[in-house]
Amino acid sequence: MTRMMSDQAEGLRRLLAQSRTRMLAIASMGRGQGATTVTMNLAAALAQQGRQVMLLDEHGHGDGTAAACWGLAPAGALADVALRRTTLQDAAARSACGVQVLPAVPRTVALSADPRSLWQGDVILVDAALDAEGRLSGLAQRADELVLVMRPHAAAITATYAGVKRLHYAHALRQLRFVVNGVDEPRAAQQVTDNLAQAGSRYLAVSLQPAGSVRAEPHMRDAQRLARTVVEAYPASPAAADFRRIADEMGHWPWRPGASLVAPPPAPASPCQARDATIATAC
């Protein structure tokens, strides 16, 4: 199938879907991998493409969050919107590049609602926070895709593989994508992605799909000082080009409308079904 035919099929699936909003969760195994930076830059790149983008931040408030890095002060959180205390337009803060940012502290009863029912834009990116046991929140489990961010170092690769194992056994995940961040040598990054994909397929029966790599950016701290992403502040930089390329490719990832990252548990059997099952077992 050519790329044009694939894009047409993808467009048809979106037309038939109940929601046109695509939702992706982005996470990392531990601090220092750059998951928030990657999430913000991809959000900025998507916004530059003319997409309506919402960034839900499971890390809440404080230093290092997307809102703090952009110098924003959201008036509310996703729970406030879900409980109808306020509207999403009033709760979210909008960055200079057009991305709407809303805190979404995980594991809150109010977050059982699908955010796609509260906002009908193009893309929702969840800056996901794993719990102490390395599991996804209920919000992140609703995503269409999970993207893991990792550095091209031995310790980060080992931690990522261990985290994939935990996610696989906790949620029965069959497919994940990953981004290699802060790459000095593209060929080395390719070796990392190949090895990780082979290990996931061979030992876990999990499809680990490379989502791309981002070259190391010497002006990353300068962009942060300006309260902007590299994509906004230094659009001609190699890292900005990498983020734009990944954002473009995201639009071509296969999409399963209505399908969540984690399948819901089976519904409890009705009394009649339970009786029939008992009879069948007895026979």
Rank of each mutant, 00 (worst) to 15 (best):
R3M: 08
M4E: 06
E10P: 01
L16W: 11
T21M: 04
S28C: 08
M29F: 10
G30R: 04
Q33D: 01
V38W: 05
A44W: 03
L46A: 05
Q52V: 03
H61K: 02
D63Y: 03
A68L: 03
G71D: 06
P74W: 03
A75S: 12
A77I: 00
A77P: 02
A79G: 12
A79S: 15
T86H: 10
L88A: 00
Q89Y: 05
Q89E: 07
A92I: 01
V101E: 10
P103Y: 02
A104Q: 09
P106N: 02
R107I: 02
L111F: 04
S112G: 15
L118E: 04
Q120H: 13
E133G: 02
E133N: 09
L146Q: 01
V149C: 12
V149I: 12
H153L: 12
H153P: 11
A155R: 15
A156F: 12
I157N: 04
A162F: 07
V164C: 10
A172I: 02
V183W: 10
V183H: 11
Q190D: 15
S201V: 02
R202Y: 07
A205H: 08
A205N: 13
P218C: 00
P218L: 07
H219I: 08
A223G: 11
R225V: 14
R228N: 11
T229W: 04
A241E: 11
D242W: 01
R244L: 10
I246D: 12
E249F: 03
M250Q: 07
H252Y: 14
G258M: 05
S260G: 13
L261D: 09
P264F: 02
P271G: 10
P271L: 08
C272F: 09
A274L: 09
A277C: 00
A280M: 01
